[in-house]
Amino acid sequence: MIRVVLADDEPVVRFGVRAVLGTAGDIEVVAEAENGSAAIDLVARHRPDVAVLDIRMPVFDGLDAAKVIRECHPGTKTLVLTTFADDAYISRALGEGAAGFVLKTGDPQEIISGVRAVANGGAFLSPMVAKRVVDQLSRAHPRPLATQRIEVLTAREREVLGLVGAGLSNAEIAARIHVVEGTVKVYVSTIFRQLGVRNRVQAAIIAHESGIIPG
């Protein structure tokens, strides 16, 4: 069972997300918070697998909470709930340790998929969020086209990057391409270094932008 702490300052949103996660069968919301500070306390108390955090909350916002959770409770992964009004937070979010982004108004199934992906050590981006992130970063930090950036990768590394972008963990990638997990870890480290990214979310963005996500 994947244990989740859910934080959002809107009771209606918490009710909706809890109801969606309750349909999964393998996910349990063990505690809820109205702000980021309370979410941190609940993570310390319950040690969940995943903290689902709204970006905009009083006291501590979701990104402040994600940073503290990453530093103090690394066993808990964070999945950020976002809206299209949150573009100003995106660059900051990528540096605060969030393992995934899910659009509040998107397909409810994406929340379930996101929780499962980050719980298993993967990254997750709702497709519409991925496009928004890519557009925002391109405006703020012009870079070569993603298709040009991945030219430095081997065919196998591109395959692994696509699977990272699809939200698979190292263990799942290893099973997919029939290698041991240690080999995947080497591939992922090499990909990060070659692309100049720091985490799976940043790598996933490039995978989405370059169109190499497997169907």
Rank of each mutant, 00 (worst) to 15 (best):
R132D: 10
R92G: 08
A65T: 07
V152M: 02
L53F: 11
G162Y: 03
H46I: 07
S189R: 14
P11Q: 07
L103Q: 02
F124A: 04
L161G: 02
N120G: 10
V20I: 15
R143P: 02
N35I: 09
I177W: 09
V152S: 07
V129D: 02
V13T: 14
L125A: 14
T190L: 10
P48H: 03
I55Q: 04
G114W: 11
N170M: 08
T183H: 03
I55P: 00
H178I: 11
S113G: 01
V180L: 13
F15D: 10
R198S: 15
E96R: 13
T154C: 06
D107Q: 05
V186Q: 05
L145G: 12
D64I: 03
A203Y: 11
R14Q: 11
G100E: 07
V115L: 08
V4I: 07
P142Q: 08
R132A: 13
I2K: 05
A19W: 09
A207P: 14
A39C: 01
P144D: 12
E172A: 15
R198H: 15
T23L: 14
S126L: 02
E159W: 01
F124E: 06
V197A: 08
G162K: 05
V188N: 13
L21V: 14
F192C: 13
E209L: 02
A171L: 14
A39Y: 06
A7T: 00
A99R: 12
A99N: 03
P11F: 11
I112C: 05
I2Q: 03
I2P: 01
V201L: 14
A98S: 12
Y187Q: 01
